[in-house]
Design a protein around this nucleic acid. Structure first.
Lengths: 226, 226
DNA sequence: CGCGGGTTTAAGCGTTTGTTAAGGATCAGT
DNA sequence: ACTGATCCTTAACAAACGCTTAAACCCGCG
């Protein structure tokens, strides 16, 4: 998962970034003012945006409006300085997905960000399931047929993204975009290496294969029907 | 997707082409001077244009102006040699969609190109339907009568193009133009081969035929009325 | 400063795909 | 029905693609 933070207080932004990367395993980009934030957010490659309201150059409310005008539907979690009912209602109507009053607890922020992402992908619960394979997004734990499986951080992230979009074919560049920060891609076969590792651990021996490659397109995770 | 590069440094152009084709899977044409660039761009068949400012015969700024005068709205990403605020602002007002200062990271260029294309398309409807045949552009999945169908990359692209223009007769050269780079005047029967493959998978047995050939003109995909 | 895990790059190898080519089938005009 | 043109299908092969393994790299920690 890839998250954008739009926040001018660099101290706070650094904390949030640290929390989201180390605790949630997300790729995080940060923008320090409204214009840069809108610019990055417009690319539409993020799975969620954490948006402060008080910002230089363009305030968060305007940013959100512009973003929705541009038909970017990335879920947005708003950080408000004070509990201002009217503002909050307006923001939610404008397309914000959740809000959090400062000062907030880091654990709660992480939980909320995960929640909006989950909702956006269309499942309310935090356990993703495909056949007898399950992935608990909160505990960061994976099981196949009840047996726990140890994954490296990157393997987990690849699997999580594939499972969040089960039944859809995900291209390698799509995966790269959502697993790494920075706005660029790599000439590399990392993804293939991780897929290889995942298969060794998940689709082993005589079990039905869940990770399928669609040559020329990408990968899907799905239970084989026919 | 089809992208035009207007750049006189052939070395750079070759790199960009390689990146866009191999990583993003786009078809790429290149023009080495402004006049040729404007000529090709005016055809309006591109999904994005990468435009250098310093060019022989006609500079990029003029090219962009002419292009917009002609009401061609293809998104344009400008490559500037130096970070010159005034120029950049003028270009953006003139209808450029993004810019990148040289030297740039290849991955970043690719990401930006994809971003402008995404923005331009909005989140258009992504599932095409003809009778009981459906093609989901997001999932890259094709079904007939509910049953999923496996297609090769090229077969998929042919089908996608035909379905996007359902009910109109598409000539073979039209298909070739959209599936390959510009300089494709070779005699070839590739299209016939793909159509053959598609029929075997889609119009099978006793199902009503959806892919029709119009002798001397091309192919149509439509549900047979009479 | 070296160790160790995780991450990334690089290279070899087997498989699939894109493309060409050739022969058969079908169509339209005579 | 004959003929030339157009289209369909199959087979073949080089190139592209994806998988795997091993080695290089990186970074935190002792």
């Amino acid at each position: 998962m890839r998250v954008l933070i739009v926040e001018d207080e660099t101290r706070l932004a650094a904390n949030v970034r640290k929390g989201l990367t180390s605790l949630a395993g997300f790729a995080v980009d940060a923008a320090s003012d409204g214009e840069e934030g809108l610019y990055l957010a417009s690319e539409g490659t993020y799975d969620a945006i954490v948006l402060d309201l008080m910002l230089p150059k363009m305030n968060g409310e305007l940013l959100l409006r512009r973003l929705r005008e541009r038909k970017v539907s990335t879920p947005v979690l708003v950080l408000t300085a004070v509990e201002d009912k009217a503002t909050v209602v307006r923001l939610l109507e404008m397309g914000a997905d959740d809000y959090l009053a400062k000062p907030f607890d880091m654990g709660e922020l992480i939980a909320r960000v995960k929640a909006v992402i989950r909702r956006n992908f269309g499942h309310a619960v935090s356990v993703l399931r495909v056949d007898d394979l399950e992935l608990d997004m909160n505990r960061r734990q994976v099981k196949r047929a009840g047996a726990p499986i140890e994954l490296k951080a990157m393997e987990y992230r690849v699997l999580e993204y594939l499972m969040a979009r089960r039944d859809s074919v995900i291209s390698k560049s799509d995966l790269l975009e959502h697993l790494y920060d920075y706005n660029w891609e790599k000439f590399s076969n990392v993804i293939e290496v991780y897929i290889s590792g995942l298969r060794r651990k998940i689709d082993r021996e005589e079990m039905p294969k869940l990770i399928h490659t669609v040559r020329g397109h990408g990968y899907v995770i799905r239970e084989e029907a026919a």
